[in-house]
């Protein structure tokens, strides 16, 4: 199994601004829409606790092995485990088998023309400068670790 780079989260440094969520949805979906972001900041405002949640790119990804449509693919350059949206049938198997869910929202879905399409972090594999959320985080709470 080819190894993957990953985004490491230092929640102590996160200030909850949500720039990562907005950058992610803007880059991938062309809209500012946190509910369509591949990274989610879990916020407890009254305790001032903030925790960005993002796919940890498992070495042996359950989603990859379980997807009946073989829609989870692996990018050879970054090693990112990503969902090929064209192949996704919306069966939710990946979300069910993800070891981090449901505590963290790692794999989410969007509904387009009545059809569910799942998505997750792909490390911005087609972006030559690398992951946008890491670049945009003003507090260095996100760090990219190469494979």
């Amino acid at each position: 199994m080819i190894k993957s780079g990953k985004i490491k989260v230092n929640k102590e440094l996160c200030s909850g601004c949500g720039i990562c969520e907005l950058a992610c949805s803007l880059y991938h979906e062309n809209v500012c829409k946190p509910s369509w972001s591949r990274i989610k900041v879990k916020r407890k405002f009254l305790q001032l606790e903030f925790e960005p949640q993002i796919c940890i790119q498992c070495e042996w990804p359950s989603c990859f092995f379980e997807c009946p449509a073989k829609a989870i693919e692996i990018n050879l350059t970054t090693g990112a485990r990503y969902i090929n949206e064209k192949k996704c049938t919306g069966c939710a198997k990946c979300a069910r088998v993800c070891p981090l869910m449901p505590d963290s929202e790692i794999i989410r879905y969007k509904t387009i023309n009545g059809k569910k399409i799942y998505f997750k972090c792909d490390l911005c594999m087609d972006r030559k400068e690398g992951s946008l959320c890491v670049e945009m985080c003003p507090r260095n709470a996100l760090i990219y670790i190469k494979k």
Partner: peptide
């Protein structure tokens, strides 16, 4: 600059600044 203090929190969404308001914690 990107000086991150664990004790800081942004007052508002989408704010990249680390101004004196953040330091209230």
């Amino acid at each position: 600059s990107k000086v991150a203090l664990p004790t800081n929190a942004n007052c508002s969404a989408a704010c990249p600044c680390n101004c004196s308001w953040c330091k209230a914690r």
